[in-house]
Amino acid sequence: MKALMSLGALVGVVGLLLLAGMVFDIIPSTTIRLVEGYMPMQMLFEVGCFVLGFTGLSYMLNAMGMGIPRFWQGIGFWVFFLLYIKYRIYPPIPFSVRAMYGTVALVAVLMWLSSNEEDWKKFKQPILNVLDAQTGFNKFLRYVYLVALPILTWGFSYNAMMPKSEEPIELRTVHPAPPASTKVHGKTYVLQTALNPYRVNPEGKYDQEYTNSLIVEQSMGRLMKPNANPWDEKAEGYLKYVREGGEIFFQNCHFCHGDNLNGRGLHAFAFNPIPANFTDPGTIAQLQETFIFWRVAKGGMGLPNEGFPWASVMPPWEQHLTVDEMWKVILFEYWHTGYYPRTWD
């Protein structure tokens, strides 16, 4: 038990030092990279490690007779969480979202502190002590608060009211509702029933199961399955079309969506928001293949009114590609990211 707790304490201390380094900009926050597409899980995991570390740390300190009072534990953890989401996560999350997470964390901390009557009393005691001010030190503290609080409030509100020129926040629908059907190159496609004509087995039959078994592996690096090389001269059906789709992708799409389909292509730095990251589980992995077909064919201009502002320079690809080429690119995108298109059922 003791060894386990010491290990926990060690984890806690190392983690705190790392975070402190990131706060003071000594260690860049990209030192331990947030792995693409797994960021939320990694965050939860890291915070979990911290909690375990803190438990160990607190146990050790108690054992050494230097326990931290509940009051400071609560506040300390809340401050830790605020610092974590501010300095650890890149790209930075906007203040409004951080404020939301911060409030949730505060509620959680209060719940933890008030889980039994005794703990809650212990937590309240330092506050009440200062309010009642029985001792000289507490009296002093009370006067400090009396003076400091109005000054701080004045400072913050003055700061907030100074005219600033910060970029206005844009809200937009990331996946606007698609139309029931779309007309591309003179032909109408009903989104509920249209199928990717290239999602076929070597016999030429539409085969979701077969094609899904040949996509790249969902592990680090997302490499193709051994013996499923689209560049194999003997590749037929699905894999052959994946290669053709890849050729089209690397002649047209990679300029924005990037060589690894992560939205960091050659021109991506100039755009705001940066192009879609297909390796993120929130993009193509959540959508039906026909939805992608509609977005590809109609581009940023084809977004419905709820997609306003039309902050998308995605070309209406019907201007550049044939219907067949678009289906093949979509095939390639799912293959390369290792995701299955969502189905209607």
Binding site: L149, P150, I151, T153, W154, G155, S157, Y158, M161, M162, P163, S165, E167, P168, A270, F271, N272, A311, V313
Partner: peptide, 28 residues
Amino acid sequence: VSAFYYTFMNPPIPQETYIYPVLIAFGV
């Protein structure tokens, strides 16, 4: 091409900026 930027013509600082924070502090 660039993305959308914003031109923002800096206004002179309004009177309220000096008054309201003082009122708020008194409230506290």
